[in-house]
Write a protein that binds this DNA or RNA. Sequence first.
DNA 1: TATGAATGAGCATTCATTCAT
DNA 2: AATGAATGAATGCTCATTCAT
Lengths: 222, 222, 222, 222
Amino acid sequence: MTAATTPAAGRPAPRGRIDKRQAILEAAFAVFARRGYAQACVQEIAQEARVAKPTVYNHLGDKENLFRHALAAAADLVMAENLAVVERLRDPGDDLRRSFEDVGHRLLKVCCGQRAGALRALTYAQLAAFPDIVEVTQGQTAGLLGEALADRFARLTLNGRLRTPDPTRAAEQFLALLTGPMETRSRLGTRTVSATETRSIATSAVDTFLLAYGTDGRAHTP
Amino acid sequence: MTAATTPAAGRPAPRGRIDKRQAILEAAFAVFARRGYAQACVQEIAQEARVAKPTVYNHLGDKENLFRHALAAAADLVMAENLAVVERLRDPGDDLRRSFEDVGHRLLKVCCGQRAGALRALTYAQLAAFPDIVEVTQGQTAGLLGEALADRFARLTLNGRLRTPDPTRAAEQFLALLTGPMETRSRLGTRTVSATETRSIATSAVDTFLLAYGTDGRAHTP
Amino acid sequence: MTAATTPAAGRPAPRGRIDKRQAILEAAFAVFARRGYAQACVQEIAQEARVAKPTVYNHLGDKENLFRHALAAAADLVMAENLAVVERLRDPGDDLRRSFEDVGHRLLKVCCGQRAGALRALTYAQLAAFPDIVEVTQGQTAGLLGEALADRFARLTLNGRLRTPDPTRAAEQFLALLTGPMETRSRLGTRTVSATETRSIATSAVDTFLLAYGTDGRAHTP
Amino acid sequence: MTAATTPAAGRPAPRGRIDKRQAILEAAFAVFARRGYAQACVQEIAQEARVAKPTVYNHLGDKENLFRHALAAAADLVMAENLAVVERLRDPGDDLRRSFEDVGHRLLKVCCGQRAGALRALTYAQLAAFPDIVEVTQGQTAGLLGEALADRFARLTLNGRLRTPDPTRAAEQFLALLTGPMETRSRLGTRTVSATETRSIATSAVDTFLLAYGTDGRAHTP
DNA sequence: TATGAATGAGCATTCATTCAT
DNA sequence: AATGAATGAATGCTCATTCAT
């Protein structure tokens, strides 16, 4: 993660500083998400952070820089959530399918949640302008998440509970089976998808995944 | 399709007008793709279309309107390409796997090509500002494409060559297995993916898909 | 001269254009003279020119460019006045001293007038920022003026009415004897110098000059 | 002089304070000279003086005040140099011409040196904004210098070595003959003038001056 | 006293949009 | 129908200046 998420409750002086920087970054992400990069004006970000405009510039220097840091901070948060979810596969219990469905469902809620959606939208939007931010957001999100998932799949394969000759590829496909349909159903996040539909997407994804990579080879019978 | 793509070479007078409109829309899409919505200025679009600025306004009225029409036109083109590819599944021949791989590979090239990438980026970028454009682009792209694919899957299932109880879901997953990994590998389109890697993605997607939905139930042995 | 001072009364359309450009340049010079380069704001220049701010940018592109052109235009005017004065020495009449005093007095009024003063101040002020403007203003003003004067001195020397082995040097000194004391007396232009004092400066300058370069070698007896 | 130029190495406590004030004033003059009044930012001055920004305000209160004091300090220095040069005319020795040339050459080096040039430029630049600074700089420079020179001329006239009925006028002209051509040749200080050219300017000035005000009435024969 | 941090005010510049031709 | 010219509205960014420490 880029920055410490839980600052020690130390001396009072720098605390205000850090609080303000944090507030600015959060406000920035909110406004960028709401308006898009170019339409977002620093004025609004400052207002939302309860700070004067020059303070924003003092802390982050530049609109572009502000954007990068706001994205990085948000990506850190999303990543932390995702990794926490994947961690649940470290000890999946007896019912592997149930575990996968649980994890899939949780990933779905994170990946298509408010923050992750905005992150994806902003990243796509500014691809042409700042091609390197992909490393910051997608690199963190899809990249690390994929690897963490691949790690779990590899261990489960060693344990004989999965059959993934190429765990990285399997992880990619698992994530794709989850998020792809979700994107379609939610119209890129513009429609709310009902809880049952969300769960259904997760179940279907796990079905297909286990049919391809499971060791029993049979999907649940609906 | 939203607009006639191939105007007949008929009367000379309206031809120039149509040509100009077409040129404006193409230039607009190019500039929007290059700069993003807000950063793109009408001036540049007019220059690229070899037209004076007010002419753009005469034809399209508004920057927002210009954007919508430019996106729609591009979406039409992408859609046409995609549908043409899917049509190949209407008569798949003996080797179903081969057909699927062929179609998958082609879809991949279209979906992650220049135009489709820009379309996706622009759509994501302006989601917050103009939520309804999703219907125009994604609705056209993912929606119609998915349904066309689902049609093929349904027929193949009826013919006993596939086993898709829910063809729409299967189509979603097929597309997800193709584009999801591609997005990851290409870093959202910022890196070129080698031809072999592209083919490998298609192959893997088809493998997984056929393991889940095929009638023989066995992946190809590499 | 940089631009035609008297535009032909031709087609009506470009006339408005030229008028506006002219108005902008004049307003710019006035405001720059009043406030200095950095303190002058384009807004005020636009107002003074009865024009919208972007029009200023459309015509002159840049504050710096605006500055350069405004200075150049003013320098042209000053130069024209100066050259017209010097021209009077082409046929000086019998009383050479009288002619010199006349010319000196007139040069003094031009060189220390409103416009020339502002020109000098602005040039000095922005020397560090735009070192090349010296060529535009001083080059025009002191340079060409000096040469024109030197030309007269050379002819008068050939005619035996003056004795200037180095006319350029003599011209420099003549101008220095005029403007130097004037600068001191007027406190760099911040005080108005009475007409009699101005005339006295001119007379003294001519006295000294003729004592050094005259052929009779005697100053007028006061 | 406005401020003590050489603070005695006395008590340690006020010393640091005075040093700091001195450092600020010097840095201020340097930055003002480099950028001009408006373009100079207090931040840069503080940095150059190795001091925090509020310290500048603590000591000098205001940007305008800072400017005045910085100019005054620089004017003091220039003035001191100039007066020292003029003092050499108190006992000119046998060869008056030689003495004058020496003094002229030295004055030229001072008046057109780094500091005096910047002083003149800054004064001109802010004439419109702060008309009273002329008294501080030009008053010190040209005014006092002229009077000191006039004093010498008066004494030399009393001694029969010069013939200046109006010493003040003569002093003005002497300075004008020196600095006027120098300004022209150096393009207002933007070009370096070679040592020989500088000397030649001084010689010519003295030539003309002595032809007009000398007692032998003859210029040196080149 | 000296300073890190914060702010109010201002300014150059850009751009979508509209007239008059 | 097409365009050169003009404008109103924003916006990023800077800077002098002031608190609180």
